[in-house]
Design a protein around this nucleic acid. Structure first.
Length: 575
RNA sequence: CGGAGCGUAGCUCAGCCUGGCUAGAGCGCGUGGUUUGGGUCCACGAAGUCGCAGGUUCGAAUCCUGUCGCUCCGACCA
């Protein structure tokens, strides 16, 4: 490609809309342009990089034996109702109506569609295992699109769906995908690592996310350098000890705490109850049903864990500003700050308590009477706990549950997610098959997503310096940029540049020649900004010595004999 | 949806508080010249319904109301 024939609108200044470095560089390097919030046009260079990522994804998916298909982006809402996700996805689903006023759903993912295909077409165990995948535009009605391609209303995703005859077979399919994902992200040239993950509304019981470490990532990952344990903070556990029991026996006692409505206030004189001897009591609404959540005073609730435990489609904290929620506080008898689960818990309310409180006594908690607390509370004796579960958020420095070394926390970008689904979709959508033993069974499914556009941005987020992008060779829009500093067709510099351009092109290299009649500084800056992995600089000065300059982006500049230039470039590309 | 901020030339922004003459700068763009190894320099030039609608006023980019869009924080979230 000739630079002058392409369309590469680089920007000197950063558009005000961009916040994070990858978003800035996507715009500045002329890769994308915004149409509206969360909607972007891929310009030629951006599209080339995107296609490179897609190519890697396709190659690795095909290598596992997965079969590429293409499913409709417009889907009937009925199948979403059948799976139960029409409600679960709620407002995240884009819905449109046709002229007959019939509603359609714009696909954010395709479990329902592929399961419908399987229901119709997979009848025998002989047809499995099978894994279908597609690379397509997905739609999600994001409340707040942000960070460019990172969280958009419309994005490109690779989604794959495996069908197996049994749980064990499904695990084999799962691990095939897990391994393929590792290869895909490695080939993309980014640091990445899998973590244990919550399954969210996709469902299933076993899941990993593939993370690219980045300070600007929207996920927090808990990990152990000693044993390799890693999990999303929404799922992570630690080996932190349970609350130490003290001498038993002291009778529960109500005491007056006028105006004290925070853990903090109760921990100070004259009460001086340390936060770790307090029980925090929270009211949540799970699918319109109120429940109490108990967490130790110095711990933080993780709402994703709570959601997973309740199995509800929607879980939210009760809000004193919401009149509909006030009835719940009224029935408890107190407002937040004086709540507890010892007395006056309405019948029918579930009480979910964090495991760290198990066995705790000598605790203090609200009395469900404004201005009063109970002390000497023994959880097992004084509170009727419906369910003990892990609800607290793990903190940095806590001991690893597996090896007891200190856990660390870092931020990361989720680029891939693999799920073992089980029969969550195959049962309602009736994807059953006749097994070898003559029994009809539901197929056991898995699903596997890669955010392709997000991966592209994650690569930029990780691979850049003050001058611009530093593309890994595997995904660069062009791997080599030839920069002649004189462009008159008859000049020795341009003739050599054209020769090298032709030679590299012939060898199948993605090469761009900067044939613009611009000053050297402009060309160098642009080449650095766009981030081509290898730049071949050809100017009169070096050519006087019979040399060209080969520069690795972000690395050293190597003078090279002009006749060896092509061979040297080929060698660097292989490295 | 709650909180905050911003919409003035393709981009980055000034002007607005305290209304007033022809609405400005830098970058970019066009023409000519100059320069030629890290975003040359000079001259000339094109380019703006001041987001939109309504109101106040003799007069609105500026004040008021509404509305739309964008950004950030929160909630939300394969």
């Amino acid at each position: 490609m000739r630079w002058s024939q392409s369309f590469i609108p680089t920007l000197k200044e950063t558009p005000a809309e961009a916040e994070i470095v990858s978003h800035k560089l996507l715009l500045r390097a002329g890769l994308i342009r915004k149409l509206a919030g969360g909607l972007y046009t891929f310009l030629p260079l951006g599209l080339r990089a995107l296609r490179k990522v897609e190519l890697i994804v396709r190659e690795e998916m095909n290598r596992t034996g997965a079969l590429e298909v293409l499913m409709p982006a417009l889907q009937p809402p009925e199948i979403w109702q059948t799976s139960g996700r029409y409600e679960a996805m709620r407002d995240a689903l884009y819905k449109v109506r046709d002229r007959a006023k019939k509603e359609w759903v714009m696909s954010p993912t395709a479990e329902e569609v592929i399961t419908s295909v399987a229901a119709a077409e997979i009848n025998s165990y002989r047809q499995m295992p099978v894994n279908f995948y597609q690379v397509s535009v997905k739609f999600r009605d994001e409340i707040r699109p942000r960070f460019g391609l990172m969280r958009a209303k419309e994005f490109i995703m690779k989604d794959a769906y495996s069908f197996d005859v049994s749980d064990e077979a499904a695990m084999v399919s799962y691990h095939k995908m897990y391994d393929a994902y590792k290869r895909i992200f490695d080939r993309c040239g980014v640091q990445n690592f899998p973590v244990e993950a919550d399954t969210g509304i996709i469902g299933g019981n076993y899941s990993h996310e593939f993370m690219v470490p980045a300070e600007t990532g929207e996920n927090e990952v808990v990990y152990c350098e000693a044993c390799g344990y890693a999990a999303n903070i929404e799922k992570a556990i630690s080996g932190i000890p349970k609350t130490a029991p003290r001498e038993i026996g002291a009778a529960i006692e109500k005491f007056s705490t006028p105006g004290v409505v925070t853990i903090e206030a109760l921990s100070k004189a004259p009460y001086s109850v340390p936060a770790n001897r307090q029980i925090k009591t929270l009211v949540f609404i799970a699918d319109s049903k109120p429940l109490l959540v108990l967490i130790r005073g110095d711990d933080q609730l993780n709402e994703t864990k709570l959601m997973a435990q309740t199995g509800a489609v929607q879980v939210r904290p009760a809000d004193v500003k919401n009149p509909a929620d006030m009835v719940h506080f009224t029935s408890l008898g107190a407002m937040p700050g004086s709540l507890g689960a010892v007395a006056n818990v309405p019948s029918g309310w579930d009480v979910l308590a964090d495991e760290r409180l198990q066995g705790a006594n000598d605790m203090t908690t609200g009395a469900n009477e404004d201005g009063f607390h109970f002390r000497n509370v023994s959880i097992e004796r004084d509170i009727k706990v419906t369910k003990w579960c892990g609800l607290r958020t793990v903190g940095a420095g806590e001991p690893c549950a597996k090896c007891a070394k200190a856990l660390k926390i870092r931020r990361a970008i989720e680029v891939g997610h693999v799920f073992k689904l089980g029969t969550k979709y195959s049962i309602p959508l009736n994807a059953t098959f006749l097994a070898e033993d003559g029994q009809r069974r539901p197929a056991v499914m898995g699903c596997y997503g890669i955010g392709v556009t997000r991966t592209m941005q994650a690569i930029i987020e990780q691979c850049n310096d003050k001058d611009g992008i530093i593309w890994p060779k595997s995904v660069a829009p062009y791997t080599v940029c030839i920069t002649p500093l004189a462009v008159a067709p008859e000049s020795a510099v341009m003739k050599l540049a054209e020769q090298i351009y032709a030679d590299l092109t012939e060898r199948g290299v993605d090469v761009i020649i900067d044939d613009r009649d611009d000053r050297p500084g402009v060309k160098f800056k642009d080449a650095d900004l766009v981030g081509f992995p290898i730049r071949v600089g050809i100017g009169e000065k070096s050519l006087a010595n019979g040399e060209v300059e080969i520069k690795i982006r972000g690395g050293a500049l190597t003078p090279t004999k002009s006749e060896e230039a092509v061979a040297k470039v080929m060698e660097l590309l292989k490295a």
